[in-house]
């Protein structure tokens, strides 16, 4: 019983962090057909910005998180202006932006390495203490992460479902041409989505570094998992991605316990392969739309 509680607690924490990392990736792919390979670096950037704001600028931890989100939102905007926009005008956007964002990610990571050094740094945004359920001590940190992720997800869902801007984002991801015919300025939507995705990446980077540590390459692993989650859910399906993230988080926690840490990634990949054989468009992927 205690083991189950333990697995669920750490699985949900993992899942929540993955969900926040994945939603941004999925939104960007859904509305622009853009695989943002710099997403992991944005996560890293967010983690370090929060650290720098708290340690070097003396920000309150909450404002450290907000500052990190703002910096990464701006970075997302910069990616739009300097990479997406020019490449959209040419052909082969999807391939070009894929390669361009790999480069951008490398630049960001090098900047972090130069500025903060190669050694792991603890994330100052952390709470100590724990709650006890049964005989299991669940760190307050995990609960904080879960709550933060819930708030972030709820805010994104509210934005997408209930606001004019959110409806335009969804419309653009369903049909760019039709959205334009409704008067949506798609360039603005793209910019908004990349900024939002940057902000979410920052939040997820801060959360991840608060239970691991800050390193210049910390974004790689969560980004890989975010991609896997996106593909399992069906690229561009935001709500499916949240669900898949939580399921995969739980699965990872379970495999880590049952088989050991080194098997968790292999299990994940095996699962992806099985899902894609069964449903090539992902679990919640869009069926090919019938066109007249």
């Amino acid at each position: 019983m205690d083991v189950v509680i333990q697995i669920i607690a750490s699985g949900l924490t993992l899942g929540a962090m993955y969900a926040v990392a994945t939603v941004g990736l999925s939104l960007v792919y859904g509305s622009l057909n853009m695989l943002n390979m710099a997403h992991g670096a944005l996560l890293t950037l967010g983690g370090y910005m929060c650290y720098a704001a708290i340690t070097h600028l003396g920000f309150h931890p909450i404002f450290g998180l907000v500052a990190a989100a703002l910096v990464c939102a701006l970075a997302g905007l910069a990616i739009y202006v300097f990479a997406t926009l020019p490449l959209l005008r040419a052909e082969n956007f999807e391939t070009n932006i894929f390669i361009a964002t790999i480069g951008i990610g490398a630049v960001i990571e090098s900047l972090m390495l130069k500025s903060f050094g190669p050694y792991p740094i603890p994330q100052p945004l952390a709470v100590s203490g724990s709650v006890v359920i049964g005989n299991v001590h669940i760190p307050l940190q995990n609960i904080m992460i879960l709550l933060t992720a819930l708030v972030a997800m709820a805010a994104v869902a509210l934005l997408l479902q209930k606001t004019r801007a959110g409806r335009a984002i969804r419309a653009t991801s369903m049909s760019r041409d039709a959205a334009q015919l409704m008067g949506v300025r798609v360039g603005q939507i793209y910019a908004q989505v990349l900024a939002l995705s940057g902000g979410l990446a920052a939040i997820s980077g801060v959360m991840i570094s608060s239970i691991a540590t800050l390193t210049p390459v910390m974004g790689g692993d969560p980004m890989l998992k975010a991609f896997i989650i996106c593909i399992v859910a069906g690229l561009g399906n935001v709500y499916g991605a949240v669900l898949a993230a939580i399921v995969l988080g739980l699965l990872e926690a379970a495999t880590q316990y049952v088989l050991g840490v080194r098997w968790s990634f292999a299990t994940l990949l095996l699962l992806v392969i099985l899902v894609l054989i069964w449903r090539p468009y992902g679990l919640f992927g869009r069926q090919q739309v019938v066109r007249l």
């Binding site: 409806r167 049909s175 041409d177 039709a178 409704m182 949506v184």
Partner: peptide, 24 residues
């Protein structure tokens, strides 16, 4: 412009589609 093949927003309800029409 009502395009050939409709190009509705398939994941939205009729009501939401109509509201998108009044986006501006």
């Amino acid at each position: 412009h009502v395009p050939q093949g409709d190009l509705l927003f398939p994941g939205m309800t009729i009501y939401e589609n109509l509201m998108m029409g009044a986006y501006l």
